[in-house]
């Protein structure tokens, strides 16, 4: 059972779809669609870290960006604190941006190289016209201290900082408006091992101090396990399994989750894992397989998997699985085909 059972839902995503056109021909008309996010539904409780994991092309980043309306959803609903924001215009979104922020993977590409760090962090306050300039500057110093940057560095430019410090600048900019909800898109993937732990610790500390809710997007499952309360596993634009962190790692039920978890290398030479080696590659999201998107690599696949897309169903205790052969109560009926 989730400790968040009685908690408030801060964000709800219902049947979200985001298709990107593949343009072709003389008139640059859409000739095909990339189904980056294809009918995804989940919710996030206030104060928790909900993670989306999956391999490249799974749609996890597109989901995060669509929730923030950095992409227009193709269809479906996004409810933030009960309000359906899926059809909000950019100007309607603007006040909400104070509450919903994003941290990017690339601390190099996401900071304006021509602005000193103080200005980069102050910019959101200026855009939202919060306080006088002097108050804003005080707030910047306060935030820099909070994220572990020395306020003396106020006038330095992004290139003068290391990767870890730049990620701290990105985090400072995201939290300066005191948001409620942050999408953290691969926030530590580009960092060296010894720096990763520092930034993960900072994210955990800020979550407690500022009562933040995170949507954490990552491919490193050991990192995800460390920070998350609940996890959703994506594959080719669809959610395959959602569960509490412990439940997912102790009792993965979807064949894809099982293979994914078994592929994680373990930093202990004495542990020899029985590994499920998947055959083949992830299919193209332009032309995904019919029915269950994982069926082409699934060792349990049967005829029904090509015919019908399995719905994501609650098998009990907040554990959701999208597989024809996983029944209520976690009863598993798959057998090798």
């Amino acid at each position: 059972m989730s400790e968040f059972k009685d908690k408030k839902i801060i964000l709800e995503v219902k049947n979200l779809k985001k298709y990107f056109p593949v343009l072709g021909g003389v008139f640059s008309r859409p000739v095909a669609w990339v189904k980056a996010v294809d009918d995804v539904s989940f919710h996030i409780y206030e104060g928790e870290t909900f993670s989306l994991v999956g391999e490249s092309g799974s749609g996890k980043t597109t989901t995060g960006k669509t929730i923030l309306k950095l992409h227009e959803p193709t269809s479906g609903h996004i409810l933030f604190e009960g309000k359906d924001i899926s059809n909000y215009s950019p100007s309607e979104m603007r006040p909400l941006r104070r509450d919903m922020q994003i941290i990017f993977q690339d601390p190099y590409g996401s900071l304006n190289p021509r602005l000193p760090v103080g200005e980069i962090i102050r910019e959101p306050l200026a855009v939202h016209k919060i306080g006088t300039k002097k108050e804003q500057e005080e707030r910047v110093v306060e935030i820099m201290k909070l994220v572990g940057l020395r306020p003396e560095y106020l006038h330095r430019y992004p290139h003068e900082f290391s990767g870890g410090q730049r990620q701290r600048i990105g985090i400072a900019r995201a939290v300066v408006l005191n948001p409620k909800f942050i999408v953290a898109d691969e926030p530590v993937s580009a960092l060296d091992a010894s720096i990763q732990a520092q930034v993960l610790n900072l994210l955990l500390e800020l979550q407690q101090k500022l009562a933040l809710t995170y949507l954490f997007i990552a491919h490193n499952l050991a990192v995800v396990r460390h920070v998350s309360d609940r996890i959703g596993v994506m594959y080719l634009g669809k959610l395959m399994e959602v569960a509490d962190t412990k439940e997912l790692f102790d009792n993965p039920l979807h064949p894809y989750t099982q293979a994914l978890l078994s592929a994680i290398p373990i930093p202990d030479p004495d542990v020899k894992k029985e590994r499920i080696i998947l055959q083949g590659d992830i299919p193209s999201p332009i032309n995904p397989p019919s029915g269950c998107p994982f069926r082409t690599r699934c060792m349990y696949a049967k005829d029904i998997c090509a015919e019908k897309t399995p719905p994501l169903v609650d098998i009990g205790g907040g554990h959701y699985v999208a597989c024809h052969f996983v029944k209520k109560g976690g009863k598993v009926e798959y057998s090798k085909s």
Binding site: A193, S194, Q196, A197, L200, L221, A222, V223, R225, H226, F249, I264, I266, P267, D268, V271
Partner: peptide, 9 residues
């Protein structure tokens, strides 16, 4: 380094 990396264990 060994202490600081999150591990499944």
């Amino acid at each position: 380094l060994l202490e600081s990396i999150p591990s499944l264990l």
